[in-house]
């Protein structure tokens, strides 16, 4: 380790973690390089793409702009923390089923951002979902399936027994328009 290395400690996905890292490294670097959690991705390292989003104390932040030193004793959640022994998080299930992850590179950042949204607002409208995720770029999906997946997960988290969309709904057809089938 470099001479400028420091030791820090935070609660990572529910577990206390103490690591040594270079003092100038951001949370992104420390998560990926020192904590062995490469699930958090990066696309610019300048705050411009949202790919590196993680939750600090439940709030979405860009890990490329936060020094790891600022995270002392904070609770940090990454995509790796969504799954538990009980299974996948409903957001993960919805993303998997609706094809909301294509290449999957933007997915970790979007999942945690969506989780924070649903914690604050259990019934967001589509427009609110879009707004909440508007700092996260995705080049593959055109976003619509992501919005629908968050909506589906929200419904299921509210306890609604919502099935997967029909083909017609998947295609974004206004209600009752089945002309494509």
């Amino acid at each position: 380790m470099n001479a400028d290395s420091v030791t820090g400690s935070f609660v990572l996905n529910g577990e206390r973690k103490t690591v040594a890292y270079p003092e100038h490294h951001t949370l992104l670097e420390v998560l990926r390089e020192e904590c062995g959690l490469p699930g958090t991705k990066h696309g610019c390292e300048l705050g411009e793409c949202g790919t590196c989003t993680v939750l600090i104390e439940g709030v979405p932040v860009l890990s490329c702009l936060v020094l790891a030193r600022q995270c002392e004793d904070q609770a940090i959640e990454t995509v790796e923390g969504l799954e538990s022994a009980e299974g996948l998080h409903p957001l993960q299930v919805a993303f998997a089923d609706l094809g909301a992850a294509q290449c999957g590179y933007c997915t970790p950042g979007i999942l945690v951002t969506a989780k924070a949204l649903l914690a604050a607002n259990a019934s967001p409208t589509s427009a609110e979902i879009d707004e909440a995720l508007s700092g996260n770029l995705c080049r593959c999906t055109g976003y619509r399936k992501i919005t629908e997946a968050v909506d589906l997960a929200a419904a299921r988290l509210r306890g609604e027994d919502r099935a997967l969309p029909s083909l017609s709904e998947l295609c974004g057809h206004p209600h009752g328009d089945h002309s494509h089938e």
């Binding site: 990926r32 390089e33 699930g39 958090t40 957001l91 998997a96 089923d97 997915t107």
Partner: peptide
Amino acid sequence: TSFRRVDAVAKVTGRTRFADDLN
């Protein structure tokens, strides 16, 4: 049918290893 992608779970859990994730 709209079967779930074979890589879907890996992608939503952060388990997919992109090139920069390899060390």
